[in-house]
Design a protein around this nucleic acid. Structure first.
Lengths: 91, 91
DNA sequence: GAATACTATAGTTTGTAGTGCAATAGTGTT
DNA sequence: AACACTATTGCACTACAAACTATAGTATTC
């Protein structure tokens, strides 16, 4: 699954689970844009991801880790962390 | 430090450490755009981050974790992972 | 002096906002 | 069940700012 649709599903999942509505993002973004993002029609910038995460009350990386976990099936959090640590370890 | 300039420095750091030139990104992006990113004049989309990481040979989250480590001083990788795990744990 | 990097400029694409309305999902009533 | 009622979301359209590309020139650095 590509990153854009993986982010779309992750955002929608986190949002609904937390009982947040699309309209609750209106302060930080336009509601129709949130709809587009969750349908995979647009891909946000890093700064927008920050604002989305702030509304959700999570760290931006939590949203992003969820995204890449979904993008790469058969991965789990700990293996993902291991991969990151390895990448940042070796020069 | 805001996310955009933190990403700028992280990209430049990873790139130079790995001996990759701005021109090596020409296949995936325009070279002048890389320069703008590294100067903090632009903020990339998630899809662009993917392509940058691919050129660098690291997982996109490695680049992003480095970014947020720099954005939030006094944080280290393990504490960051703990925060993410906690965020994804509680519904 | 040839790579490499920085900068300016102009053009194209796309992220982002705003408006309005149709469609759907819940929720409760009788 | 079926109905109305409300909240929420999908969707089409317009408009603008910003991301992104392309070219070319100038400065660095090796």
């Amino acid at each position: 699954m590509d990153t854009r649709t993986a982010f779309a599903k992750s955002l929608k999942e986190l949002r609904t689970i937390r009982g947040v509505t699309q309209e609750d993002f209106s302060n930080v973004s336009s509601r129709t844009y949130i709809s587009m993002i969750e349908r995979g029609l647009r891909c946000p910038t890093l700064e927008k991801v920050d604002e989305f995460a702030q509304v959700l009350g999570v760290h931006p990386l939590a949203l992003l880790c969820l995204t890449y976990l979904r993008a790469e099936e058969h991965e789990n959090l700990d293996r993902l962390f291991g991969r990151i640590k390895a990448d940042l370890g070796r020069p």
